[in-house]
């Protein structure tokens, strides 16, 4: 039960983060190249992602030995989780710039506008491709998380439902708020999801190799607490270092950090 709740939270959070990033590109493509093409591109990518979950997920659950699956999936979750958490720690401590969707939106709009006016035909190829690629690339990461968490705990349907719910929530908020993507606390979400993915990663690697965690599923909560505490300490330490860094050096660091 505990792991089901955390699974839903992890998938929902991860899908929120990726949906915000995909939505930025769809909104940019829609507002510059026409909504029809952008929505068709996003829809086509979503269809491929759903087919991917069904085509890869179901055979994974039924034909791959569960312990092998858990070790591989735990490793994948660790790669994702540690990567997200590292970036979140560096952002929260001021070592690199915060992720700013508004800035990315403006940049994409500028690039798309420089490609000339949209075609007068019913479908604008550039708008379609930008929205399609944006949703497909960001969605692939969600698919991997859904497959990983869903398959290893035999809750593929629940994980897919959580991802779908997140996509609908972010899509609705995006439509209502239009371009105010800054309102979505993406950096905090990424931090939370990074903690959960890393914790699940360690948990499944252990389970897959035959480790019996004390408290069974409850061990995930202990692992989450561990990653939270360590990340908080790391943020505090790196923030202190950033404060000690001369201002001139700090501005060049921020530039190098990128988005």
């Amino acid at each position: 039960m505990t792991s089901a709740v955390i699974l839903v939270l992890a998938v929902f959070g991860a899908c929120c983060v990726e949906s915000v990033e995909a939505l930025t590109l769809v909104l940019a493509a829609g507002s510059t190249r026409g909504w029809r093409s952008a929505l068709e591109g996003a829809g086509a990518a979503l269809f491929i992602l759903v087919v991917l979950v069904a085509a890869v997920g179901v055979p994974l659950v039924h034909y791959v030995p569960i312990n092998v699956l858990r070790v591989v999936i735990g490793g994948l979750l660790l790669v994702l989780g540690l990567g997200w958490l590292r970036k979140s720690i560096l952002r929260a401590s001021g070592q690199i710039a915060l992720h700013d969707e508004d800035e990315i939106f403006e940049h994409t709009v500028g690039e798309l506008s420089s490609n000339g006016a949209p075609t007068t035909k019913r479908r604008d190829a550039i708008g379609f491709v930008v929205a399609f690629k944006g949703v497909l690339l960001e969605g692939t990461e969600v698919v991997l998380i859904v497959l990983s968490l869903g398959a290893s705990s035999h809750r593929l349907g629940l994980a897919a439902a959580a991802a779908g719910a997140a996509a609908i929530v972010v899509g609705t908020i995006g439509v209502v708020l239009a371009r105010q993507l800054r309102e979505v606390p993406e950096n905090a979400l990424k931090f939370g999801v990074g903690v959960m993915l890393s914790s699940f990663g360690v948990f499944w690697v252990g389970e897959g190799t035959g480790l019996r965690w004390p408290g069974s599923d409850l061990a995930v909560l202990v692992l989450i607490a561990l990653f939270l505490v360590v990340s908080a300490v790391a943020i505090r330490y790196l923030r202190l270092i950033a404060l000690r860094t001369p201002v001139s050096h700090r501005s060049s660091m921020e530039k190098a950090g990128g988005l």
């Binding site: 070790v71 735990g74 490793g75 994948l76 660790l78 790669v79 994702l80 989780g81 540690l82 990567g83 590292r86 990663g201 360690v202 690697v205 252990g206 897959g208 190799t209 035959g210 480790l211 019996r212 965690w213 004390p214 692992l223 561990l226």
Partner: peptide
């Protein structure tokens, strides 16, 4: 590549320590 290397280290340690439950529970995390 840090996250990838980190994941490899954790998986490797878990495999090596799979017969040492008490040590693995502490060392893997």
């Amino acid at each position: 590549p840090d996250a990838f290397i980190g994941a490899l280290v954790v998986v490797g340690a878990a495999l090596l320590l799979r017969h040492e439950q008490d040590a693995a529970i502490v060392l893997v995390p």
